[in-house]
Every structure is written in structure tokens, then in C-alpha cells.
Lab assay of single mutants.
Amino acid sequence: MGFKLLSKLLVYLTASIMAIASPLAFSVDSSGEYPTVSEIPVGEVRLYQIADGVWSHIATQSFDGAVYPSNGLIVRDGDELLLIDTAWGAKNTAALLAEIEKQIGLPVTRAVSTHFHDDRVGGVDVLRAAGVATYASPSTRRLAEVEGNEIPTHSLEGLSSSGDAVRFGPVELFYPGAAHSTDNLIVYVPSASVLYGGCAIYELSRTSAGNVADADLAEWPTSIERIQQHYPEAQFVIPGHGLPGGLDLLKHTTNVVKAHTNRSVVE
């Protein structure tokens, strides 16, 4: 069995187990497998329904001669939608809004960016022009300005110390501490036991640490421990890039980060 097929099978099995364990909360999309990078042309966006009122959005972007996937989250909030992270750029984010209108038909009224990198804030200006209120932590807003990236308009308070959590509509926002970046936030959907790890969490097929220019490698494993301790009931975990899975993604990420750190020390 090929690795790609095995990865998709694991996603399907995880979703099936969740649907059985929580039949009222989960209505997993039966329309197909989780979209992969090879299936999404740059400039297009796919939506994948995880649970009743919960979707991931998947886009792709060219970077350094390669094409990478990027995940975000959409959560229903009454007759409105909360968006977590842009679709990595203005063109993708405009396509995301169009796809949401086509498939869901509810307005996106608020959006949260989970850290300051372009795959999370690139497209904020498109959201703002569409009347979406954009939010991020003060740290993310400051770092985005320093980096020359787009800056969300509103500040999220109460997320300055490791372990801080605040309720934001249908989700809980959690600051686990520094990891992929010093400002990275985690998003949890309690009604569906869905954990969105953003770039602080890796997919299972990833074996290298990737972009760690703004990471705190020493603190990252401790931050992941905080996530595990705060959300032990999480059933569906979405990484910032690639295929979702279960809580095993947290341990896998820790292993990859520690291996990278150990290699760096040896070198």
C-alpha cells in the first residue's frame, strides 16, 4: 500500500471513529477524501466538511520552486461564519470567499490569524475590503508590521502568557507558548472536538522541520505538551499544512522538532 493511500485511509478511519463516538456532533463529509496538494491548482481553494458547521479550507501556493498546501478553518456561528487564517495570499483568499459563498452561503463576518507569517495573514486586506472584521493577538499584529505583512485590524486580548485561553464565538483560542513562531495560536472547536494546530503542528508525513527561522526550538516541545494537557479530548487535529489526523500529530511534531534540534547540535 502506497504512503499517500495509507495517509488518506488514516484520515478516513479517524473521521469514521469520530462519527461513531459522537453521532450528534459529527456529520463528516462523505463526498470524498481530504484534498491534497496535487489536486488543488494554485489560485483555487477546496472546502472539506469535518463536522456539522465545521470545515477546513485548503489552498496551495508556490514557494521556492515548489507547491505547498495550506489549511485553515471555518466555523459556523449562528447565521454567520468565523474564518481562521487566510488562504495564503490575496488571490487565494478572494477564491476562498467565493467558494464559501458557493458552498455554504453564509457571510464571513470575523477572521482570526493564528500567527504573523504570510500563509496566515496574506489576504487580510481582501477580507477587510469584503467587510470582514480581522483579528490577531497584539504580538501577531506587531510582528506582521515588522515583517511588512498585512496586519489584522483588531487585537485579541488575554493571550499574552503561555497557557492563556479565551473564548471567541464558537471557538476557544489558546496560546501554548512559542513553537513554530513566538505568537502562534491554537484554535479548538469544543462542539466538535476539532483542534486546529496551525503551523505549530505537523502532518504525519512530514519528517523535516522546514521553516524554523522564527521558531523557538527549545520551547516548542513544552508548548505541545500544554496543548495535549489542555485538549486531551480532541479527536480531529488539523495541521497548518497537509493531512489531518488525531492527537498523534502532536507527538510526531515533537519528535521531528527534537530530531532537528539534535542534528543542529551535532553539526
Rank of each mutant, 00 (worst) to 15 (best):
T109K: 14
L143K: 14
V108N: 02
T261M: 06
Y231H: 04
I104N: 01
T153I: 09
G53R: 09
P232Y: 09
E150V: 08
S113K: 04
V37R: 09
F174R: 02
E44Q: 12
V166P: 04
F168L: 07
E80N: 15
A51Q: 06
D248E: 12
F26H: 15
E150P: 15
I58R: 09
P35I: 06
E219H: 15
S137L: 10
E44L: 11
Q235D: 15
L156Y: 02
P190W: 05
N92A: 12
A178S: 09
T207M: 07
F26M: 06
T254A: 10
G65C: 03
S31L: 08
E219Q: 10
S22Q: 06
L96C: 04
A25R: 09
C199F: 00
S31M: 06
G169E: 04
S16C: 06
L106V: 15
E39T: 06
I201D: 03
E233C: 05
I74F: 04
K8S: 13
S27M: 07
I84K: 02
S160P: 11
Q103Y: 10
S181P: 02
V28I: 09
A111Q: 10
D183W: 00
L106Y: 06
A25E: 07
V146R: 12
F63S: 08
M18R: 05
H154K: 06
V187R: 01
V112G: 03
G177N: 00
V126P: 04
N149L: 13
T114A: 02
R120W: 02
A94M: 14
H115A: 00
V112M: 11
V11Q: 10
A95G: 11
I58N: 05
L10Y: 09
P69L: 11
R263E: 08
G245E: 02
D29M: 12
R142A: 14
Q61N: 11
N262F: 06
S264F: 14
K4D: 06
S160R: 14
E225M: 13
V42L: 11
L159P: 06
S208P: 07
A136I: 03
R167E: 07
M18E: 05
V171K: 00
D85G: 00
I20L: 11
T93E: 00
A90Q: 13
E101P: 15
T93R: 00
P152T: 06
V132F: 02
E145T: 12
R167W: 06
N149P: 06
S223A: 08
V265G: 13
T36H: 07
I84M: 10
D85E: 07
A259C: 11
E44N: 15
I186H: 04
S22E: 12
M1V: 05
T93Q: 01
T134I: 05
P239Y: 01
E39D: 07
P232T: 07
I20E: 10
D118A: 12
V237K: 00
A25K: 08
H241P: 02
V212K: 10
L24R: 09
G210P: 09
D29L: 09
S181N: 00
L143A: 09
P232E: 06
S223I: 04
N262R: 08
A59S: 09
K258E: 14
S16E: 11
D248H: 14
H180I: 00
A111N: 15
R76F: 15
N262Q: 05
R46K: 06
L73W: 01
A234N: 03
W55Q: 01
